[in-house]
Write a protein that binds this DNA or RNA. Sequence first.
DNA 1: ATTTATTTTAACCATTTGGTTAAAAAAATT
DNA 2: AATTTTTTTAACCAAATGGTTAAAATAAAT
Lengths: 204, 204
Amino acid sequence: MAKKKLDQTTEEKILAAARKVFIRDGMAGARMQDIADEAGMNKALLHYYFRNKEKLFETIFKEATIDFLPRMNAIFESDIPLFEKIEIFCREYIAQISKNPFIPLFLLSEMNKKPERFLNKMWGGQKIEVSKFAEQIQREVKKGTIKPIHPLHLIMNLFGMCVFPFIGKTMIHFMTGISQAQFDEMMEQRKSIIPAFIIDAIKK
Amino acid sequence: MAKKKLDQTTEEKILAAARKVFIRDGMAGARMQDIADEAGMNKALLHYYFRNKEKLFETIFKEATIDFLPRMNAIFESDIPLFEKIEIFCREYIAQISKNPFIPLFLLSEMNKKPERFLNKMWGGQKIEVSKFAEQIQREVKKGTIKPIHPLHLIMNLFGMCVFPFIGKTMIHFMTGISQAQFDEMMEQRKSIIPAFIIDAIKK
DNA sequence: ATTTATTTTAACCATTTGGTTAAAAAAATT
DNA sequence: AATTTTTTTAACCAAATGGTTAAAATAAAT
């Protein structure tokens, strides 16, 4: 009885601050004090709302993935023709990640450091399910509609082209001197350029 | 004077240990004690040979890039025909990275956290120089030997396909249940699959 | 062999960091 | 208005961590 948030302030503020600091500095580099400062409040508040750093991190980590996975799986498992599916995936993936461009690097980096963290605890058995998609590719190969290619190679190519610009963002800015606006425009273009590229590569 | 290393022990041991720990845990997550333990020696030794953590980190960070950059630039700046150049790059890049598969994620992650670190101090103005390569692509487009494509998009595609498997390794293992040996074999295949894929995609 | 320079160690130190506590302030309930 | 519950804070604590120091062990030079 009695404890419904009417407005959405403190807890939300903490999460927003934690999100920012964790994604910027990683679990190891993030300081509780920094998160408190960023949220404009006392450090003890963080411990009051989330028991400890680990718990707070888990919340952010989950949040960054959990509602992203089903969305991608829905695409992969759907009954759409291959070429169209590739188009939809690129468009959706890039649109989604563009909202939080640093998520992939954060995720893969943390994942790499403590694979168990999410392998056991984080995602309750959930994961990106590519088997249906792989089968679809294999079927098309057998039908002879596309050139022979190992499904996993095609999937790696697809993922690689979509995600690399986000992961390599800093390096790209450094190498090319491209502006943020130009980067955003390129990513907008890539929604259609990548599928076109792939289809040109595999269609017979 | 008198101080030439005849054998190559302590300093080498420190570097090997630091390399391992830094690449695994990142700058923020790495503990000097862990490095000392890994090297089988006292913590003060690390400070004797390298003044502090930052200095030790810089050494590892440089080491992980400095002799890699010129090698890649040499390829990009060389006078080889486009398709052949793409083949050579993929083969060399994958071969090189396969020796230290965790370097890219380590690098991009740290780069992302403190861009100034290497932007100013680390690489003395050095960087991957893709402008020559970009011009070459543009020339081929104008000549009409390949389909129209913005050079940077093609470069992103190239990099993405080459580097993604290494960066996403943990996630790939998790998603597909592939073994280490299988992964290595796939990367071996990708040395020729990626160039073939790209050439199929852009050739007229 | 003695002295000198180099390498390695154990014991400490100062700061940072995650986390606690007890009390004040603010809301909600009576 | 009084009381109870929830939210927020300041002050503090213990452990961890980067770093220092002075002395011991080892190797080099005389």
